[in-house]
Design a protein around this nucleic acid. Structure first.
Length: 832
RNA sequence: GGGCAGAUGGUGGAAUUGGUAUACACGCCAGUCUUAGGAACUGGUUCCGCAAGGAGUGAGGGUUCGAGUCCCUCUCUGCCCACCA
């Protein structure tokens, strides 16, 4: 006799199955023929723990991982910790614990939180960037780069955050402020290690267009903009009365006849070199000092107003017309881009235009908008204000014309189109040896050293005799010394510099006295290659065994936030290309497909943060609703790539849904009473099979869940269910709600895990329904809905439509002019 | 200033890509079981209107038998970049 059915109690089943899966290695099906590598951007284990926003991406990869395993793949889905860097160190300083201990504690918290949600993670492959066995290889990669001249020492001024007390890379800035603490960044000359990322600029750019790279257009565009390739020419402007010349970079050589002065950046060497020739050197020097004191932010904020000083006594010659033009120094020209000098064409460049107006410099127009002499062309609509209605008026107007057009007043190049003029003028320059084609990038080399404690030591030794010497591979890793005090200093020296016992060492080459490099690597070092370590996490001889896991060499699916567009994702691509060049990896790109999840914000619309007190902890969600309801809700709440506000009330809905699935068990027919399920439920089931399969593949989890809800609602209305139908439902549900699916699966008498079963396939024939609804419209408005046999012809539908009372009412007294029939959808009667 | 998204009920969002707008869910309303409650069950829920009917996807125009979807103009919101010559 059957007892009253047990209630659905997640607490009773979730922990049980999590233990079962771990014990049985359910998700370690690596021996399967085909592999699939699905990866989450690993978290930074902060002290605050996870909030409900974090797992959104992890759940999505988990759904995909489970679906792929059910589809026959051996899935690699690992997790680890990115634990070096400032946040961990600052947390440690604030809480007066050593970072190593803080990290250990935080990792434990994160892991405990993750385990409750029921992921397929293979914890045997867990990695931690602060583990010496791990950072040994981070150091190894650095040395390989150093050996090939890709890591170099520099003393150039770099971004210095006075609050974090460390140098920063360009990528670490946000509008001239430190990305971490918001402090305005200063320029500070500092000895530092730099990675020659610009050497890879072209490849980093070009490979974005590779067909194999399935990334969102917006991330690719962000990387393109960051790399900032621009093609132009370097033009030589001889300096009057000297053998020297000023080289300027321009993308608009077609405007060069409109050049009325030249501007150099305050850092430009011309100023010091020609000191004696500059009549107003004192004034110039004062200006340069003032400019140097300005932060990048100030330079940017004052962008509207441009200041500069004329270098009295210096003139440059425009190579095209031999005209002598004055030279200015102004900080609107950047020392670090191009040649640090520009030719100013105020008529056709906004910045030059503003500067020229301020200092009353001549504005000479040499580009005429196309169509000005004839009819106004559409090409420039909007670009040409009414003030520009006549060519001549442009010169004196309030605006300059910055687009391409027809070249005028430019000697032999007059009357050419801008694009043609650029080609011919460049050719002329090359012939006269007064210039050459040049490509410039906005992206800079990667400032790679930090003056902080909690990072990978840079494995180099400074020796008085031998210079910079690498630590031999057999001596790696260079361990980060355990110290009590690791607070940063103001001096630009790493706190490691004061640990003399560690600093003083033997030169690996001459065995004489040597000093260790005391700078550490930036936070982004460890994450630039971590995806490779998961493939072969225990390997002590090599970073990764290429032969062993060739099939996993690059990540098939990578999921994470968009905030990494120009840092982690750029750095990892750079390192991967380098590792490809030295034949450590076999592919050119690390991440084939990239999907960016939308941010989950708090219900008040703000980011979840301790500061606002709006953090929702996933532990609480699991405790009140169960992991399955929580997981399903995160997938159901909205489109995956879109940002969305958290709403705890919504979890109730997915919990109710799971209760219904649980309840359906009682409807399963037993062997004795073979009640046929209707055709309706069968076609709906197959429609759902198709929908859920396609939606998981397309990352449309919200509609996958809703289609499951529709199926379950329909099943509830049935008196009996075929066991086969119910099994199919459980399989479809299992990626989203693995615990309940596994529990019900085993209650059906299955001995093996549901995740070792096979994903059901839909049958095209069974999807088709016997009858279809046809909307009958009169002049585009729906007046009736007919139920007709599938595949009815137009005549049959027309007869039925015209017989409908409501339709008759709307066409009464009018002439039917036309009918449109879309089979299976619509029948439109046009009357007039 | 530039680039990329986006705007649909009270709320989150669907819409076979030009074919019945508002699926699914939350919330709300009414009822049922219950001493009570709801994270239970049943029904209802775009707006105006008693109804017939009409209006309706940020605003305005266009193409079409038919537009949330395509084209033009505009408004607003979010994210990213920003003196890069």
């Amino acid at each position: 006799m059957k007892t009253v059915m047990e209630r659905y109690e997640p607490k009773k089943i979730e922990r049980k199955w999590q233990k079962y899966w771990e014990k049985n290695g359910t998700y370690r099906q690596y021996s399967r023929k085909q592999g699939f590598y699905v990866l989450d951007m690993f978290p930074y284990p902060s002290g605050a723990g996870l909030h409900v926003g974090h797992p959104r991406g992890y759940i999505a990869t988990d759904v995909t991982a489970r679906y792929k395993q059910l589809s026959g793949y051996g899935v690699l889905h690992p997790m680890g910790w990115d634990a070096f860097g400032l946040p961990a160190e600052q947390y440690a300083i604030k809480n007066k614990v050593h970072p190593e201990i803080a990290v250990k504690k935080n990792v434990a918290t994160f892991k405990k939180q993750l385990e409750k949600i029921g992921f397929t993670y293979d914890w045997e492959r867990e990695i931690n960037t602060t583990d010496p066995e791990y950072y040994k290889w981070t150091q190894w990669i650095f040395l390989e780069m150093w050996k090939r001249g890709l890591a170099y020492e520099s003393n150039e001024p770099i971004n210095w955050c006075p609050s974090c007390k460390t140098g920063l890379a360009n990528e670490d800035l946000e509008q001239g402020k430190c990305e971490r603490c918001g402090t305005v960044v200063e320029k500070r000359p500092l000895r530092q290690w730099v990675l020659r990322m610009t050497k890879y600029a072209d490849r980093l750019l070009k490979d974005l267009d590779s067909k194999e790279l399935e990334w969102s257009e917006s991330i690719k565009e962000q990387q393109r903009n960051w790399i900032g390739r621009s093609e132009g020419v370097e033009v030589v402007f001889p300096i009057v009365g000297t053998e020297e010349a000023l080289r300027v970079f321009t993308t608009r050589v077609d405007t060069i006849f409109g050049c009325t002065y030249v501007v150099v950046a305050p850092e430009h060497t011309l100023i010091a070199d020609r000191k004696s020739q500059i009549a107003n050197y004192k004034e110039v020097e004062k200006y340069i000092k003032k400019a140097a004191a300005k932060s990048d932010l100030e330079r940017t904020e004052l962008a509207k107003e441009k200041f500069g000083v004329k270098l009295e006594g210096i003139e440059a010659v425009n190579p095209f017309n031999g005209e002598k033009v004055p030279v200015y120094v102004a900080d609107y020209v950047l020392g670090s881009y191009g040649t640090g000098a520009v030719m100013a064409v105020p008529a056709h460049d906004e910045r030059d235009f503003e500067f020229a107006k301020k200092y009353d410099l001549p504005i000479r127009n040499v580009i005429e908008p196309i169509g000005m002499t004839g009819t106004v062309s559409d090409t420039f609509d909007g670009a040409i204000s009414s003030a520009h209605s006549k060519f001549d008026s442009i010169i004196t107007s309030e605006r300059c014309f910055t687009l391409d057009g027809t070249v005028r007043n430019s000697g032999e190049f007059s009357d050419l189109k801008s694009s043609e003029a650029r080609v011919k003028m460049t050719a002329w320059l090359q012939k006269e040896k007064l210039g050459k084609k040049k490509v410039n990038y906005k992206m800079r080399d990667w400032t790679f050293s930090r003056q902080r404690y909690w990072g990978e030591p840079i494995p180099l030794v400074h020796c008085e005799k031998c210079g910079v010497v690498p630590v031999p591979e057999k001596d790696l890793p260079v361990l980060l010394p355990k110290v009590k005090s690791y607070e940063p200093t103001d001096t630009g020296e790493s706190p490691l510099a004061s640990i003399t016992k560690w600093v003083n060492t033997k030169c690996p080459q001459c065995k004489g006295k040597g000093k260790r490099e005391t700078n550490t690597m930036p936070q982004w070092a460890g994450s630039s290659w971590y995806y490779l370590r998961y493939i072969d996490p225990k390997n002590k001889k090599a970073l990764v065994d290429k032969k062993k896991e060739q099939k996993m060499m690059s990540v098939d699916l990578y999921v994470g936030g968009t905030e990494h567009a120009t840092r982690h994702l750029l750095y990892a691509r750079f390192w991967h290309k380098f590792l490809y060049d030295i034949k450590v990896v076999s592919g050119k790109e690390p991440f084939k497909k990239l999907v960016n999840q939308g941010l989950i914000v708090a219900s008040d619309g703000r980011k979840m943060s301790k500061r606002w007190g709006n953090v929702v902890n996933p532990d609480d969600m699991v405790a009140s609703f169960g992991a399955d309801a929580f997981r399903t809700y995160e997938m159901f709440m909205g489109p995956f790539t879109q940002s969305i506000a958290w709403n705890t009330d919504g979890v109730v809905g997915t919990r109710r849904f799971l209760e219904k699935v649980w309840g359906l068990k009682s409807k399963i027919e037993n062997r004795k009473s073979k009640i046929e399920t209707g055709r309706d439920i069968e076609s709906l089931l197959h429609q759902t099979l198709k929908k859920v399969t396609e939606d998981i593949e397309g990352f449309k989890f919200n509609t996958a869940v809703s289609s499951l809800m529709i199926l379950v609602n329909a099943m509830e209305k049935e008196k009996k269910l075929k066991a086969e139908s119910y099994k199919a439902l459980l399989l479809l549900l299992s990626p989203f709600a693995p615990h309940i699916a596994e529990e019900l699966w085993s209650q059906l008498g299955n001995k093996k895990s549901i995740f070792l079963a096979e994903w059901p396939k839909w049958d095209k024939k069974k999807i088709a329904e016997e009858t279809v609804n046809i909307a009958v419209q009169v002049n585009g408005k729906v007046r009736a809905v007919l139920v007709v046999a599938a595949g009815s012809d137009e005549a049959a539908v027309k007869a039925q439509a015209l017989a409908d009372a409501n339709v008759q009412m709307h066409i009464a007294g009018k002439t039917v002019r036309k009918v449109i029939y879309v089979p299976g959808r619509i029948f439109n009667i046009v009357v007039g």
